[in-house]
Simulated assay, not measured.
Amino acid sequence: MKIATAAYPIDWFDRPDAMAEKARRWVAEAAGDGADLLVFPEYGGMEWASLAGPAVRGDQAACTEAAAARWDLADALFSGLAREHGVHILGPSAPVDGGHGTHVNRAGFYRPDGAKAHADKQIMTQYERESWSLRPGEGPAIVDTALGRIGILICYDSEFPLLARALAEAGAEILLVPSCTDAPMGYHRVRIGCMARALENQMIVVQAVTVGAVDWCPAVDENHGAPAVYGPPDHGFPPDGVITQGPMDRAGWTYAEVDLEAVRNVRRAGQVRNFSHWPEQQGRVPHVTFLQFGAAPP
């Protein structure tokens, strides 16, 4: 299959048809280049808030409410584009109403047959806990597609091994990680998490990013990153595990051709067998050995 992963700028729209035109242009470009699976980033949907007009400028709470209010509009738009172009799409995430004054960070997944599902972020960053009205959503998400079984973890979630492991054990061979990071160090934390999840689960991991400055929305005011597709550094994959990586902070699609048979081969006959050897940790972790030092030589 061919995967397209986005470095996506968050724009301002004066009218709904401008928002729809951007989505159509991005999807049409990737589909026209032969992509089967398109991955948009975390919080790319914050741009939907601009449809509420100038009143949201500089007001994080207003931006959040406005983006959440347009979830259904965006959901229908990306579902229609998946059907129109015959592709699978992980749409840009955005806050949705979580009840009692809270919100959940959610990304929609759209199949070309019209079926759709969603994935929620599991673990909140300090900013999301302390400065935003966000709470965890439903459990780690996995979807069945004609391309294979696909897991989804949103940004910070990728830095926690057990979430990805649960998806791998449920049959995921591809993990999608839409991300939004405001500094290079944040981007590299997610990048390293993605590469580690690819190594330990012997799977393909796709990272999408937001890029550019957003002077009207405090929650996503700066965005840095490079989109990439990673695999285990073993037989059938690049020695460094980087299948493809786009340029830093440059908007556009980055593409990779992947074959899930390579995942199955490396799990079955790789130089190492991290996926199958994972359970061996369970009997050892509770039994930490405190080493005793002998006497120092005279």
Rank of each mutant, 00 (worst) to 15 (best):
R197Q: 15
A107P: 04
F293Q: 11
A213D: 12
G246S: 05
G246N: 08
G252F: 02
L37N: 03
L175G: 06
G186A: 11
D17H: 07
P238V: 03
D221S: 14
P227A: 10
C155G: 04
P16S: 01
R70A: 02
D182P: 10
F78D: 00
R83V: 10
G236L: 04
V258L: 07
D259T: 07
I10T: 00
A269I: 12
Y8I: 00
V209G: 04
A68M: 00
A296D: 14
L51A: 00
V229K: 07
L134H: 12
T210Q: 06
T244P: 09
L90R: 09
A141C: 07
I3N: 06
E200Y: 13
M46S: 03
E280I: 14
A226V: 02
E173D: 13
C180S: 10
A115E: 08
A256V: 05
F237Y: 02
R15C: 07
D182Y: 10
F275H: 11
G137V: 04
L163S: 12
M195N: 10
E130W: 13
A30E: 00
H287S: 09
A55Q: 15
D14Y: 10
A82M: 01
I123M: 11
G186D: 12
P286T: 05
D249S: 03
V288K: 11
M195P: 07
P297E: 12
M185V: 11
E130D: 15
G294F: 10
D249G: 05
E130I: 15
R191H: 11
G241E: 03
Q271P: 09
Q281N: 15
F40L: 09
V258W: 04
T289C: 12
Y127S: 12
P233V: 01
G236I: 03
E200S: 11
D33S: 13
E29L: 08
Y110W: 02
A295P: 14
N201I: 07
A269H: 13
D97S: 01
G44F: 02
V220T: 00
E169S: 14
V96D: 00
I192N: 13
W26K: 06
I174P: 06
V263T: 10
A7Y: 05
A62I: 09
I10G: 00
V96N: 01
Q60N: 14
P112T: 03
P218K: 01
V285Q: 10
I142A: 15
